[in-house]
Design a protein around this nucleic acid. Structure first.
Lengths: 132, 132
DNA sequence: CGCCGACAGTAACCATTGGTAACTGGCTAC
DNA sequence: GTAGCCAGTTACCAATGGTTACTGTCGGCG
């Protein structure tokens, strides 16, 4: 009988351990799911960019938050950060090969999202009507 | 010359508007990126589940938070919620066709995450060493 | 008869995080 | 000499996520 999580996970997915609460995969999924991470990576997928280019390309992101996002991505080895000792300062962000390998999956998700905007809006409207 | 976000977006991506800050696509991406959403959807991809089955399958998720997640998914039309007037109560969650269409993209992402756990851990360690 | 437990959640509360507005520092162009 | 550029940082606040405890209904057990 399947009554607990371990059984469920074992039954349905033995190819990985996303469903183990102590698995680091969760942390990575969280990172990828981050609000700005996906946007930043997609922007960088076409070539290196500077801080302000990313900032403007994303739009309405506070510099502090963008810095956090980029630092995390750098720490995870998905982007590299190159500082030029010039004035005004220049910092260029580039996807690493690992970062590039993530582009295909996340583009699939973002494409899906774009495609389904109307359907989801419709679903939300009818849900809100029913629960008025 | 490409110096601002509008130009960047126009140059690189004319197939969508993820890069328009006012685009609803962002909201959807946020939803998909939610910590528990992906786990819940992947669990449901193998068949309908009850509340506690989801709860146990995910592990360490507070009921309140799971409820929020499931309500949002229901509102977005990705899952359906069926209540049986029994005692003890029974509530079954099922993927809608639209929900099913999201499985392939998010599985791609979660597969990527599982594959790259070691590489990312390594990157983090060396980053932390360099910035000790 | 009275109590316990199962299920699917709420309610009240607290901690962490995300986000905003304002400021830094070095240099250069006006 | 002062205003502005870039790439941030600091101090602060609101919102969100998370934890613990509780609810309601009924069947089964003692």
């Amino acid at each position: 009988m399947v009554t607990n999580g371990e059984h469920l996970a074992a039954k349905f997915f033995d190819r990985g351990d996303v469903f183990d609460p102590d698995c680091p995969t969760r942390l990575i999924l969280d990172r990828i799911g981050d609000k700005w991470t996906v946007l930043a990576l997609l922007l960088l997928s076409k070539g290196p960019l500077r801080f302000t280019e990313l900032r403007d390309g994303i739009g309405r992101v506070a510099p502090k938050v963008l810095t956090q996002t980029l630092r995390r991505l750098e720490r995870d080895g998905l982007i590299s950060r190159e500082v030029f000792a010039e004035v005004p300062p220049r910092v260029v962000y580039t996807l690493t090969p690992m970062g590039e390998s993530l582009i295909t999956p996340i583009r699939a998700v973002s494409d899906w999202a774009e495609e389904h905007v109307p359907a989801i809006s419709a679903a939300q409207n009818s849900y809100d009507l029913d629960n008025a």
